[in-house]
């Protein structure tokens, strides 16, 4: 991340800064950790469709495939699930999809399954338009960048198999850096527009937005209505949320502010997970923020783990 803090002078300096930012090779530990976490999230997300696979993807679907295709009419979206309705085939494809996500999580044939995981995730999202929310946006983002970067180099079955064959080389990869940067920028854009959207609402300015989130019984999982008895705290949390989201894109890149920015992210998303019933979304965004944790932490964990084995 020090790549970002170095000031660029002149166009040569700008090119060098661009090179440092995007193309300095990076060890795979951080992306590998995120592969395990995001892979598990992808697996669970798709496992839940199996509770009523026919009801979401089959002949008795809430949103039949014809309607799903019509909702994407005139767009470039594609889903192989638009062409499948037979229950047995649907189940076979769904089990295959779960197997791909499981393989991604444990890191077996990572290079291939990461690309397959992206294609599968996109197909499910396009087919299931109408029942999606922020979790699916995270899933697609994570699958996309895990397909770009070399995320199976460590903490994976692939790495274990390589070691068994006597191959101990671990090479920093440029693709890992590119994937990391894309993921980081994507997170910044999500929060920037999340903040801009809130800044357009009166309730986010008068300090009562948190109340209307807390008093939302369809979301609520643990009571948060006590917050109304503490108006200054309620308003403070509301205001901090707006400012934190809007300026995340600036503060997260400053080494002196990064951990504070991530600490607020942790609190906000834990709050969403615990109080607002969106455990998966809250966890997903915490995983997403982990892309900004210092690379050295992961390298150190990796080195410790390797010394310990």
């Amino acid at each position: 991340m020090s790549d970002v803090a170095v000031p660029a002078r002149g166009w040569r300096g700008a090119v060098a800064a661009w090179d440092r930012f995007w193309f300095r090779p990076e060890m795979p530990h951080k992306l590998a950790a995120l592969r395990m976490a995001a892979g598990a999230m992808l697996f669970y997300t798709h496992l839940v469709w199996a509770v009523n696979l026919d009801g979401f993807l089959g002949r008795r679907a809430w949103i039949p495939r014809d309607l799903s295709r019509a909702m994407h009419e005139g767009t470039w979206a594609f889903s192989y699930l638009w062409y499948v309705e037979h229950p047995a085939l649907l189940w076979a494809l769904h089990i295959a999809a779960l197997a791909v996500f499981a393989l991604l999580t444990i890191g077996l044939w990572t290079r291939v399954v990461s690309v397959l995981a992206l294609l599968i995730t996109l197909s499910y999202c396009h087919r299931l338009e109408g029942s999606l929310f922020g979790l699916d946006q995270f899933n697609t983002m994570a699958a996309m960048y895990l397909a770009v970067g070399a995320c199976g180099g460590v903490w994976s079955v692939d790495a274990w198999l390589r070691r068994r064959r006597g191959i101990f080389e671990l090479t920093p990869a440029v693709s890992t850096k590119v994937a990391t940067r894309l993921w980081q920028i994507h997170m910044c854009i999500i929060y920037l527009f999340g903040g801009i959207g809130k800044a357009r609402g009166e309730l986010w300015w008068d300090g009562f937005a948190l109340w209307y989130a807390a008093a939302n019984s369809e979301y609520q999982s643990t009571p948060l209505t006590w917050i109304i008895y503490m108006p200054p705290l309620m308003a403070l949390i509301t205001h901090v949320t707006v400012f934190w989201e809007t300026f995340y894109i600036a503060t997260i890149w400053r080494p002196s502010l990064r951990m504070a920015t991530l600490a607020v992210a942790l609190l906000v998303h834990l709050g969403i997970a615990v109080h607002m019933g969106m455990i998966t979304f809250g966890l997903a965004m915490i995983i997403g923020n982990a892309i900004f944790l210092p690379q050295s932490w992961f390298d150190r964990w990796g080195s410790s783990a390797e010394r310990g084995t």
């Binding site: 922020g134 357009r200 009166e202």
Partner: peptide, 10 residues
């Protein structure tokens, strides 16, 4: 996506 979570108002 718009990323307007709980926006402009919940």
């Amino acid at each position: 996506h718009g990323y307007f979570f709980f926006s402009p108002n919940p």
